[in-house]
Design a protein around this nucleic acid. Structure first.
Lengths: 380, 380
DNA sequence: CCTCTAAATGGTAGCGCTACCATGATGATC
DNA sequence: GATCATCATGGTAGCGCTACCATTTAGAGG
């Protein structure tokens, strides 16, 4: 039989020479080439490559050597064709906030590359435009949708995905919901931690600029701020909480208002970096030194945070990992659906980090006379 | 024969019913389904789909109708498998400037999606790291490299690509070179136009902040500035030209120096938006109003330009289109190489736009608040 | 009418891989 | 030692599409 033939001959290199008239364009090695080199069948190679069990260690090693020798890498197209897969996932967004976006894309792309998934990127002007867009995409065979805020804050968008029987994963949305998967950080806790960090520095009058009221995360961050103040036994002063909309412009307005309050707050926590940057600008215009006269903290760790001077103390969301998770989740759910399962959409919460840079400091003793510092409790 | 059979029956729907035991997972229509519906062979459908000639109008229409009816869309994996293609292109960069990056990714992704090309994104810390990275990528079957600055300003990186017989396309590099393809804007002319725009507003003392000296584009923009001054018969004052490094911090230092010169310049043209933003911040700190006390212009039209207040008048590079062109160029060159051709690498110059926002005005006059777009000169 | 060319279409054989089943070895169990 | 499970491996048949060639048809020219 063929086996004996292969096992005994020594010219395995020529054995698997390409048939003439082959249509092959590139000379990249195929699974067959590796099989020839390793003196086994393509199937065994496939098993090794895909990490399946039931292969003798010796055989596996042979195959691995052959792969290394030929510098083989599997053909993705053939893989997905044969595997009958060919996942296509859409990234839809209406928020062209560039710094966020590139992280977002990178995370998705990496994961897609690893899993051989096709990513389609689509942007739309208004949130409302997303609904027909999702329908159209669904018709071109896209089954999964990764949705960053503010798109994922709109229930109609989520519903549109459900309607076309697609899979939606919300990235960075503030709240969980049963209708779709979600990956996010704990905005409440992050808001709490940052506020506590500021309190621990010795601040007592801490201003807060709220984000866009339409995004759920805004509210959560505010709640975290409030809870931290309360836990520290600090008074919650209404004048020190102003509404913003996540834009630089709204941050300026907010900062102007806050810095006009008397006595002035010694720290301002803005719900995102753009507004924090605006706060720094306003402070500078008033000849306040950041951080010596006033501490300014942001949220998101976008490019802005480390571009301006002083660089901002902020909260870093692992956007990249979050998006990668979203893509992987869609892949998994699709696989499950194909095999009949149909379970509740999952949600996951990722860790964030408080990045301490140069925009925070203890309140200056020179300016305001302070009472003794009261340590706030740490809440887990 | 089979033909007569197909041509006469009316139950073409059931005719092509799937064989039992098929491994097909998805129920997406295949080219065979379309052929059955249109009563022709899969080949003819393929011809129509791929826009080849030699198909009767009537037949084509039939096929088109069938495609529409079944909502057919070709399977990419099968396509590239059969076509023997499977282009893989790497985007390599060491400049994590986020706003630039996301545009960059979008352009590449769009084109890749259209042409069914696989994009691999890789970043590296230092420019030197790019060289082994390119070698490694080349070994995994990547033949094309899209390189933004500052990577493409380093000849060693370009050489590394040549060494592995890959195709390099520099995006946004300031100068042309014979060893690789390139797509860029005319930095000289853009620098000239912006300077002229400022001169036309009535300014005579115009400061300039140079970019990173290692990037070719920096020098070109400076030359444009000089040429415009000269053409306008304005004196070139050495004190009004300071060195920067494209960073916010360097922009602050530059702006402080420029605004310390007496008499003060009435306008500052920074070689990129980050430095222009820093200039605005410094001006504000000195209680100078932008643009009424001083005009500030940037370059690149990154997110920063339209985030801060006042929004910056700047030069917009069509990054997205440039990257898309780069990807398309690699695809074309690869095709040519496969068919034996081997021609000189191409270069192309794209049009830029002068985006007028709120940061410029005539010296000491009430500011205008317009967003005019002045078309840049387009070459070829 | 009959060749001859070109246009229009069909048939076939893969592209490189994996799902599925068949087969041969190897022990373990009674 | 026969029976059966289990592991290790091979064979085969596609996945959906296109390259290539064969075939048919329509028109041109003699």
């Amino acid at each position: 039989m063929a086996m004996a033939d292969v096992m005994t001959d020594k010219d395995s290199d020529t054995k698997h020479a390409r048939k003439r008239g082959s249509r092959r364009k590139s000379s990249a090695p195929t699974i067959g080439d590796v099989a020839g080199e390793a003196r086994c069948s393509p199937m065994t190679v496939s098993r090794v490559v895909n990490g399946e069990g039931n292969v003798r260690d010796e055989t596996r090693q042979n195959v691995l050597n052959a792969i290394a020798k030929l510098n083989y890498s599997p053909n993705r197209a053939a893989r997905s064709l044969a595997g009958g897969k060919q996942l296509r996932i859409a990234l839809v967004f209406d928020n062209p906030s560039a710094s966020y976006l590139s992280e977002f894309l990178m995370g998705a792309l990496e994961e897609a590359s690893r899993k051989d998934i096709h990513i389609v990127v689509e942007s739309c002007e208004k949130t409302a435009d997303a609904i027909p867009l999702i329908k159209r995409l669904s018709e071109t065979g896209i089954s999964g949708f990764v949705l960053p805020p503010p798109l994922c804050d709109d229930q109609r968008v989520l519903d549109a995905v459900t309607e076309v029987d697609g899979i939606a994963i919300a990235v960075g949305q503030g709240k969980a919901s049963g209708s779709h998967g979600a990956v996010m950080i704990d905005d409440f806790q992050a808001g709490y931690d940052m506020t506590k960090h500021i309190i621990d520095l010795g601040h007592k009058r801490i201003g807060f600029i709220i984000g866009n009221p339409e995004q759920v995360a805004s509210g959560r961050r505010l709640e975290g701020y409030r809870a931290a103040l309360e836990d520290a036994g600090l008074e919650l002063i209404d004048d020190l909480v102003v509404q913003g909309r996540f834009t630089y412009r709204s941050g300026m307005a907010g900062a102007e208002k806050l810095l006009g309050v008397s006595p002035r707050p010694t720290a301002i926590f803005a719900s995102n970096d753009d507004m924090a940057a605006a706060t720094v600008a306003v402070a500078h215009r008033l000849h306040l030194d950041v951080p010596n006269d006033i501490t300014v903290c942001g949220f998101d760790d976008t490019a802005m945070a480390s571009t301006i001077w002083p660089e901002l103390t902020t909260i870093r969301q692992p956007i990249r990992e979050m998006t990668a998770w979203a893509v992987a989740a869609i892949a998994r759910i699709t696989r499950e659906r194909n095999s009949g399962e149909r379970r509740e959409p999952e949600q996951t919460i990722m860790p964030y980090k408080l990045i301490r840079r140069e925009s925070d400091a203890a309140p200056s003793l020179a300016g305001n006379r302070r009472e003794d510092i009261v340590e706030g409790r740490s809440v887990k």
